[in-house]
Amino acid sequence: MTLRAEYAFDLPVAPKEAFAWLSDPARDPEWQSACVDTRLLNGAARPGCRYEITFQLIGKKMTFTVEITEFEPGRRSRFHVVDGPFGYTGTYDYTERADGTTGVHWTFDVEPGDFFGIMPKSLLKKVLVSQVKKDSGKLAERLAQPAHHRS
């Protein structure tokens, strides 16, 4: 059963900068609290790029091999699992706001199977959304600060 989680948020930067943060898997550990590590397997992010990513979530550690299928800087990126404990497909859609900042729409289609045990799917969905909400909120705070305070 596929479960869809989605969330929309704003980042106080231009779409290309937002894209550079969110759609580059190499930077995932910097802003996703559940992401423990990423490793690019065949070069920089682009369509066809494969990477290994490890999450620690709800007491479980999980590693996936993911391939980027769409990569349009400032507009959209899309990726899906090619190997891992369960499958997912993620999408970021970027929209430029009138003030030059960025609206982001995150979509995540997951097929968790029995990986999360007794946890109800509805709860898993909430956890995923909650994580993105927290992480994106913190990232937005960070990006709102002067550049030299961000790292």
């Binding site: 709800i58 007491g59 479980k60 999360f116 045990g117 946890m119």
Partner: peptide, 9 residues
């Protein structure tokens, strides 16, 4: 706790 998965909870 490090491994608070669903079974632990």
């Amino acid at each position: 706790p490090e491994t608070a998965d669903d079974a632990t909870i």
